[in-house]
Amino acid sequence: MSEQATARYTNDFLREVEKNVEEGHWVKMCMQCGVCAGSCPLGSAWAHPPQEIFMMIRAGKREEVLTSDSMWMCTSCYNCMVRCPRQLPITHIMHGLANYAHRLGLSPKGQPTQATATLFWNNLIKKGRVNELTFSLALYFKDGFVQGIKNALNMQAVGFGLMKAKRLNPMEILGGHAVKDQAGLKAMIAKAREIEDRKKGFAK
């Protein structure tokens, strides 16, 4: 076979994924059976189901993979993972790819799960525990003030129902639950981020 024909299968993107993406070293093990695609509850919403993503990585389609919103359709149900005949940790690889694309600034603009995930993470590391009230409000207002009011009005009945059931506390706006060792937690997260950024080439 000519060098030209095989060149695209010995590309740098597969190596990049193996090195920088969580559990990325498994990608080469996929045998293209498609059980993952058929097992996904949101299967029809994926432009490229996992087995296609794996083949695209091996074919060096870096931009198509990293700008795809496919990985953002993962609900973390783990169906693909337990059914994979080669036992690839597909859920983790999809998470890893989504995170990698986001960190490189390549994930689709305004992708709702990406935006939600960022709000969620920022919320939880602020105090070490999730503040469901401020997270919900941040979510409602992520697309601007007017949309936020609309969203809040739309979910008003549910919100009041939850408050009445003591499952949503308006007083959480004042800060809410938190870990005591705030300084330690923040230092730990910063250190973990620093190590990961250095390893994966995100360090500034």
């Binding site: 969580e22 989504a98 995170n99 986001h102 960190r103 990406q114 969620f120 993470w121 590391i125 973990a192």
Partner: peptide
């Protein structure tokens, strides 16, 4: 969904 912003090590 912590993975998407938080990454692996954090």
């Amino acid at each position: 969904i912590g993975y998407a912003e938080g990454g692996e090590l954090p």
